[in-house]
């Protein structure tokens, strides 16, 4: 079957989709967006978390056919998504990318100035930057799902308590870090966000 939907503000069409395929498979194998991860494919680890019409869900448990006409944000679009939210064009968290942004959007934004292959110079969302700065990334396989979940939590709860953070991220397994640095990262992103708002 054919499925049409919007990913990170861009219209996408997937053809010859087997009816049993998940949104996760379509993103990874058909649309060249492997950022959402395939750790358990049973909704137990959160590595494949994306936003579906603004709501964080496990993309492994969404049948591809169910996303027809809907809006998906993945980790690849998180920086753009956060930037637009900050610019006030997306208060609800469920909006897409403008046509102009969509046309210039790329899955692998590179800073043309340096020859860096590490993505330095890439514009990151505050939560992405905080994960790097706090040492919340080790193998990184859980990171995309955690970022999408944490970003959405900070959107709803800008000054979360530790227990709020733990609850919001309780659907995302990490095997490397013991979660301490992930908590640090979310606290850091929240604090930076607060400082920014105070400055404004």
């Amino acid at each position: 079957m054919r499925v049409n939907f919007t990913v990170n503000g861009r219209r996408q069409e997937a053809d010859d989709v087997w009816e049993g395929e998940s949104l996760l498979y379509v993103l990874r194998e058909r649309l060249g967006l492997p950022g959402s991860k395939n750790a358990c494919e049973q909704g137990e680890c959160g590595s494949c978390t994306v936003r579906l019409d603004g709501v964080p869900v496990c993309s492994c448990l969404v049948a591809a056919g169910q996303v027809e006409g809907r809006e998906v944000v993945t980790v690849e679009g998180l920086a753009d998504f956060a930037r637009q939210r900050e610019q006030g064009s997306c208060a609800s968290g469920a909006c897409g990318t403008s046509l102009q942004d969509a046309q210039s959007w790329s899955a692998a934004p590179r800073d043309g100035v340096t020859d860096s292959q590490t993505g330095e110079g890439t514009e990151l969302s505050p939560i992405q930057q905080a994960f790097i700065d706090a040492g919340a990334v080790q193998c990184g396989f859980c990171t995309p799902g955690l970022l999408v979940a944490a970003d959405e939590m900070l959107e709803r709860t800008p000054s979360p308590s530790d227990e709020d953070i733990r609850e919001a991220l309780s659907g995302n397994l990490c095997r490397c870090t013991g979660y301490e640095k992930i908590l640090d990262a979310v606290r850091l992103a929240a604090a930076r966000q607060e400082r920014k708002e105070e400055a404004v």
Binding site: P34, G35, T74, E76, P109, G119, F131
Partner: peptide
């Protein structure tokens, strides 16, 4: 992974693959 930064041994320099891992661009075997 090219990183231009300060930080020799004993310092908490950041991962050279960190940005790729938070943007979803870091390619795993799957």
């Amino acid at each position: 992974l090219t990183q231009k930064t300060r930080g020799g041994i004993g310092e908490s320099t950041l991962r050279p693959d960190g940005t790729l891992k938070v943007t979803g661009e870091f390619a795993y075997s799957s």
